[in-house]
């Protein structure tokens, strides 16, 4: 599946995250986080897992994380994917 439009989901409050999606030729993920040093790898793994679950093959995925827990990452990303893949 591809991201077909520019969308966003989430907030920039503490313990939340903002997900920005946009159409792109290839899949490109960038993550910025307040807890990059401590949890960067776990966040990346969770994002990759959710993208794979939804079969996302192309699109720009930009995440600004404020220390969200895994379930919040999952929920925000899924919401953004649903919005971004709706035709």
């Amino acid at each position: 599946m591809k991201i077909v439009k520019k969308v966003q989901a989430g907030t920039l409050q503490s313990s939340d995250l903002m997900v920005f999606l946009a159409p792109a030729e290839a899949l490109c993920v960038t993550i910025e986080s307040t807890v990059q040093k401590q949890f960067g790898e776990l966040i990346r793994a969770k994002v990759d897992e959710v993208l794979a679950q939804h079969g996302i093959e192309a699109g720009e995925v930009r995440i600004t994380d404020r220390g969200a827990l895994d379930y919040a990452i999952e929920a925000r990303l899924e919401t953004a994917i649903r919005r971004g893949t709706e035709v």
């Binding site: 503490s14 313990s15 807890v35 404020r66 220390g67």
Partner: peptide, 14 residues
């Protein structure tokens, strides 16, 4: 005599 630390268990994932 008694010092009590109050804090949320998680702050911004930490």
């Amino acid at each position: 005599k008694l010092s009590i630390i109050v804090a949320p268990s998680i702050r911004g994932r930490l």
